[in-house]
Design a protein around this nucleic acid. Sequence first.
RNA 1: GGAGAGGUGGCAGAGUGGUAAUGCAGCAGCCUGCUAAGCUGUCAUCCUUCGGGAUGCCCGGGUUCGAAUCCCGGUCUCUCCGCCA
Length: 424
Amino acid sequence: MLQVQFIRENKQTVLDGLAKRNFADAKAIIEEVLTTDETRRATQVSLDNILAESNKISKEIGGLFKSGKVEEANQLKAKTGELKEESKQLTEELNAAADKLNELLYQIPNIPHASVKAGKNEEDNEEVFKEGIIPDLGENALPHWELAKKYDIIDFELGVKITGAGFPVYKGKGARLQRALINYFLDKNTAAGYNEVQVPHLVNEASGFGTGQLPDKEGQMYHVTGDNLYLIPTAEVPVTNMFRDEIVQENDLPITVTGYTPCFRREAGSYGAHVRGLNRLHQFDKVEIVRVEHPDNSYNALNGMVEHIKEILRELKLPYRILRLCGGDTGFTSALTFDFELYSTAQERWLEISSASNFETFQANRLKLRFKNKEGKSQLVHTLNGSSLALPRVLAGILENYQTENGIKIPEVLVPYCGFDMID
RNA sequence: GGAGAGGUGGCAGAGUGGUAAUGCAGCAGCCUGCUAAGCUGUCAUCCUUCGGGAUGCCCGGGUUCGAAUCCCGGUCUCUCCGCCA
């Protein structure tokens, strides 16, 4: 969430930023934030004054009792009764204003970075980079779900039997390739300095709020009601929450972490051809990278993440492009997001396989993740994350782009991880 | 699942009704020629007319002139027993 103080001091910047996102009623909500904030502060001043007086009297009473002046003390007691009534009412008003303010702030998305263009949806995203060769597969090219069946490496129906749609079973070389990808990604990330972690796949409510999945995206997560825990939709949630309510030292920065987890998403409302095969699943695997950065270095770090992901795709020899998301398509919590899309030659469409974002202080503010700066004061850090990478669509891309008449070739860098060079 | 103990600042750790000790670490300044020590201030959050003021001892209620301290409810952690990969 944004900080009120920031909104107070940069009203126009905030309005301009929200306009880029096509955020409706920006002006109205910002005005409401400002008036609510004013009410809150004015109420606090009145309340503080009353409490100050009440504290003073209490001290006097203490002194009087000690010196045995019971009658005088009792007289003062009557006065505190009135003050108590007043303070009770003001406290309620203050809480109401603070709650309202928070509620409003929860609804306001992050302010986009200067480089982000205004836009409504994915059609307005800008392609900023493109690389790789789109193979010529000929007329008989098959989409990955047919390849999966042909070579018996992914069984969607079996998953339906066990659980339901969107929970595939990987078999034989399919399972092995999947595991190879996870290991390969983790190795690349740790080689780049990311610290590998294994984190819980269920999180509590506080963590859900910390990274912003709650309260707004509650319906997208699987909820274990018996214990009030949520299955993670991404490793970002447990990994970033490792640092919730922490104050780190400035020279601890940057903190860089990578982790593999399965991800669980209800994907309520998704349908149609775009969800076929591996394109959209309820459970999938992903390797994530997270960075906690000094504010001065966060954009530099974001570029570093982008370069890192590029290198992986280069090694896999897959055709891909990078998009800078427009205001309307940038996630609620993000200031700047680059999406990586892999070209699926058989489906003739781009598939999102990674997303690298700088959240600036937006997430840190909710998380209360700060560092001690040069002045010895607590200051919010910047948080970033990215997928490196999401498995199913990379797998789909490999199956489709590497298909030959004799079977599916394994990208060279993965052969040592797989122990075979062909699925046939 | 049963029983018990406990949750205090970045960390450690006092405080059992009178308004959060102390130590370590961090930050700023001063001082001093010796691998750094010493001194002073600062060191949770909010408000402020910049003088201060308020809040804060896991969370929420209550008792009281006054609560970290007493009472009620919740929650989490630890220890032991049980069960178990």
